[in-house]
Amino acid sequence: MRRNRSNNYSGISLPYPILSMGDDIIPSLDEKCIAVDDPVIESELVRIGVHLNFDNEYIKSFIEKDMAEYCCEVNGSSTYYREIFRSKKPDFVIEIPRSAVKGRLVFTCSLVVTKTIEDYANPGFNEDYDGASFLLECGDKLIDFPPFRYNMDVKYDKLFAAGSIMKFNAGTDDSRETSFNLEGNIIYITIPPKMYEKYRRHIQGDLKLASQLHSSVVMSALTYALLNLYNPQYTGKTWADALQYRISTEPELQEYDLSDLADIMKLAQRLLGDPFKRMFDVLAVTEDSDV
């Protein structure tokens, strides 16, 4: 799961303080305020376990008085899906119909008022709110947990295969260069038609040639993608989510700085499983290669 690290309320003035990762209420939520189990994908359902926690006894008292409830809203814009799941407990399981969603899903959890609170005056209010109290009504948020997301189209168990996020396709008859297209959910390596025909007939699926493909045109495509990984234009694309997931979950990939081109080249090699070494191993005359 990918989690945003802060709640962004830029440009918006809220009518009262909400406990979040900001400082309207102190102490604010910490990094461990939300934990999510790996989704279980069955034929009919997607099950996701969510675990919320926070440290604010004043707010907890409203839960105990049955005046507040946890909820998680799931947004799947690809299918216009928007549903809310409610729970009186901080640990709950969300079940989503498998046929209702695809692509990126965004989950936003909150603690919400269910019965009117006449004088909400949290002792943790930032000093800017000193002495203030607020009337809160049903639906008002007490806590905004940082959102997390999951991409239904990412083959998380096959992320090590370049083919899971890239494909070759043929360009038009008058195309001369190879181009890389990031607009779709898959990175398309578009090659001139005659080259594509050679690829399809003689190269595709040949494992002996994979290292040469990976260390050449695939490496170029992946480098281009990494350069654009956080470009807002590609937010939510399956290839971007897949790469971000790998980088955020594999410790050895987190040492690279994506603002440094030299690091991007190294990261691309790690993501492709050292393609240059594999290519030299294949090309070498001797069986033993100790690079």
Partner: peptide, 13 residues
């Protein structure tokens, strides 16, 4: 919607 969980509410609201 910035401070109210709209999906939590019913049509009367």
């Amino acid at each position: 919607g910035a401070y109210k969980k709209l999906s939590f509410l019913e049509r009367d609201f």
